[in-house]
Design a protein around this nucleic acid. Structure first.
Lengths: 337, 337
DNA sequence: TTGAAAGCGCTAACAT
DNA sequence: ATGTTAGCGCTTTCAA
């Protein structure tokens, strides 16, 4: 491999001192016009561009953030995550940060890994995607500053981490209100993966709100499983086997809902006449299944953007206390309920 | 911000020399057992872990690769891309590379950007996602080695870039054969974005194969647009307005097909009785729409894995000539055709 | 305005 | 087995 041109090469070829070349390139105004021109010229000839690592090492700064995404059931990134990622990338670009993504192979990211990454010196901050089961914030060095970690989708403010989440509980309550208003009296809830934080929040919200309406005993819980369509289809089978079938089915996610709807329709029932179905997430395909799916749309991209903004504040030392940023999802009334 | 512990700190506290500490940490066998233990102990106490940038700078190696993904219509990563990304991440982890992703804001990535990145010294190789319109491989330095760039989804071997692609032409031919075999005699093709390489390949393949069957004049081309569901739905409107409606519709992607199917069903036609519809990609939702979608499944994850493997070979100097790796998609016969 | 020198944190010969 | 020394490529005082 032919060696890349370095600052020294440019210096040699221009007959200038390395420091002058460095200056010419990073603070052009502090250098003679003619010198600057010459440096630029030679740099171009040599195809020189600065080694970022050396620069960072020297300046003592870094400008890369890491998104750690757990691996749900060995799936690709969930659609919601990619929307979030878009928001992160956009904001990162605006703020001058690079983003690195680590698709973690476990479904929970071990705090030690985060410490290691943070200590590695290449990363200035971490965004944690929907990571559960954190008992404590990792100790990074002996610093007293809050570690630059922002949690997305899971509230970890009790651990001192700024968190950007959707108001899931509110979203599901609103959904229940909507269904009750439409006159439904019997309900099923198709759950997501057992034990997941999201799942707990969503399930509880549905139960609570139904109870508020005096309908607490009219809810049947159907085991879903992972947030995917296959699980939804399985839940549909369970639903069909029920003696008394609830008229309204609330699914914990759009994927679940689409799978569920598919199972229902395949069995010859019609939606929403026989069964009303609602989802949660607002993924694009929810608008193109037949019938179109009533759902709560999460501001996923905005969540990503917001998280990145908070992280930048943390890194630049413009923020120090953990804050919770909760974004409201929006009801999308369509044909399925 | 409290300073992180450095190698020097550990050296000082153990009373050893920095190089010894370094050795103890990276090649434990070349150091006294007792020394190693002491170093480990102190390192743990201080929460020390090596600065990766300094290490790389010193060793002259880097182990991070960059995935550059163009931004299609300001959308999040396409589902296909996320599958590919999964494959990349898995293989990268196995090979000891980190992966960085750059969500490029233009729909075409400028070669200059790639040079800059490669010259930045933090990245040892680049994977280009479905990037069109490259006229030439960027000159990186004055080296004679092939630059470590691998193209995914688009064949750029004529530019000297190793490329990993799906056999799209073969896939669409096979699809045509299948439909002809099923007795269909009139066809529509719902196109993707005009001018896109994929689009050209797919369209041409359909036409060619139909001609082979003597059915070249039985094809109507419907303008789709971006590879998304909304475009498919628009195409459905166009289809419905046709005087003579072809019985079989080949969509350039699954998203298009799902959108198209939605439009068709919403208009009261039935699939596949009135119109047979097929897609391409094999996304998970294609199995959960009603009716389920007949499609060609791309080995997306495998494409990612393969690309990463090739890139690693390139970086490690174990490969030098561009090669084309073309993976065969697989027909998934379902209910829509 | 430019040059000389020191140093970012680490590794890798080369000595001892 | 350990210490010494030199440097990776760049930036940044400090002098000139």
């Amino acid at each position: 491999m032919i060696r890349r041109a370095t600052l020294a090469d440019v210096a040699r070829k221009t007959g200038l001192n390395a420091s002058t070349v460095s200056r010419a390139l990073s603070r052009p105004e502090r250098v003679n016009d003619e010198t600057r021109r010459r440096v630029e010229q030679v740099a171009a000839e040599l195809g020189y561009s600065p080694n970022i690592m050396a620069r960072n090492l020297s300046r003592g700064v870094i400008n890369t953030i890491l998104v750690m995404a757990p691996n749900f059931a060995d799936q690709a990134l969930l659609p919601v995550f990619t929307d979030v990622l878009l928001g992160i990338c956009n904001e990162a670009e605006a703020q001058g940060f690079n983003v690195m993504i680590q698709h973690h192979s476990a479904s929970t990211i071990p705090p030690e890994d985060v410490v290691k990454v943070l200590n590695g010196g290449m990363i200035s901050g971490v965004i944690l995607m929907a990571t559960d089961h954190w008992k404590a914030v990792p100790e990074i060095g002996s610093g007293t500053q809050p570690p630059p970690i922002v949690s997305i989708m899971v509230d970890m403010t009790h651990l001192g981490l700024t968190s950007v989440v959707a108001q899931e509980a509110e979203g599901f309550s609103e959904m229940v209100d909507y269904l009750v208003r439409r006159g439904y009296m019997s309900f099923a809830y198709v759950s997501g993966p057992k034990g997941a934080t999201h799942e707990k929040i969503r399930c509880r919200s549905v139960m609570t709100q139904l109870t508020t309406h005096g309908l607490g005993d009219r809810l049947i819980r159907l085991e879903g499983g992972p947030f995917d369509m296959a699980s939804g289809a399985r839940a549909a089978k369970a639903y069909l086997a029920l003696h008394e079938r609830p008229r309204a089915v609330i699914c914990s996610s759009d994927a679940l809902a689409v799978g569920f709807m598919h199972g229902i329709i395949a069995a010859g029932l019609s939606v929403p006449e026989d069964v009303a179905i609602v989802g949660y997430d607002g993924l694009d395909y929810s608008a193109f299944v037949t019938p179109t799916l009533t759902t709560m749309s999460q501001p996923s991209t905005e969540i990503g953007r917001s998280a990145m903004r908070s992280l930048a504040d943390l890194i630049l030392g413009q923020a120090s206390t953990a804050q919770l940023i909760a974004l409201r999802p929006k009801l999308l009334v369509r044909d399925s309920a």
